[in-house]
Simulated scan of single mutants.
Amino acid sequence: MPGSKTRLRHFLPYRLAVTSNAISGMIAGEYRNEFGLKIPEWRVMAVLGDAGPLTQRDLVRATLMDKVAVNRACKVLDERELIRRSPNESDGRSHHLELTPAGVELHGKIWPQAVGAYERIFAALSPRETERLAVLLDKLFARVEALEEGEG
């Protein structure tokens, strides 16, 4: 409605999204120029570095990025020889993706920078507030999952 006052700034889902994007953008700035990775590419590398080999479907679930973004990120990482594909023995239609030695090395260089940026950002909160925020985010995420499964 033209002329009406927006309450968007009070709408928590919007504020969560904007804050998340701001935090991701700041952390991405730490590695984008130096390592030439965009947020989706780093997100895929971070998950593979943490979880080990996964299929693209697993990456979609783990990152909550859409299939196209995951596919694009994997293509770039594969072309840069930062990830490799191996056959998925339990499903011949998919492959496992994992970091190559070069990917592991790059992950090892970026991760400390990401942690450093995280620490600088979260210095605004006390350790207790940070812990409480983590608990609240877990509760919200679990609720979304339950509602999507029709349990709510």
Rank of each mutant, 00 (worst) to 15 (best):
G150Y: 07
S24L: 09
T19S: 12
D66F: 08
F35L: 07
T55C: 02
L8Q: 01
E129F: 13
L37P: 01
E79Q: 13
R132K: 11
Y118E: 05
E79G: 10
P13M: 05
S126T: 15
L37W: 04
S24W: 08
E34W: 03
Y118K: 04
K109E: 09
I110L: 12
R132H: 12
G3V: 02
L77A: 00
R72C: 05
A51D: 13
E30D: 13
S20P: 01
R61C: 07
L106E: 07
G116Q: 12
D91S: 04
V60C: 10
V60F: 08
G29A: 10
K38G: 15
R93T: 15
A22Q: 11
L106V: 09
L54S: 02
E81I: 04
F11Y: 12
K67C: 06
V135I: 09
R9C: 01
G52V: 13
V60D: 03
A123T: 13
R72I: 09
A124R: 15
G49W: 02
R32C: 00
S20I: 04
Y14F: 09
G152C: 01
L136S: 00
E149P: 05
T100A: 01
R43I: 08
N33D: 15
R85G: 08
R43P: 01
D50A: 15
L82M: 05
P40N: 04
L48M: 10
V70Y: 02
E149G: 08
E89V: 08
E81G: 04
Y118W: 13
I121R: 02
R85L: 10
F141T: 05
P127L: 15
V70C: 09
A17S: 08
G25N: 11
D66E: 13
E81K: 13
D50K: 15
A102R: 14
N33Y: 13
L106G: 00
R128S: 14
K5F: 04
A22F: 11
E105A: 14
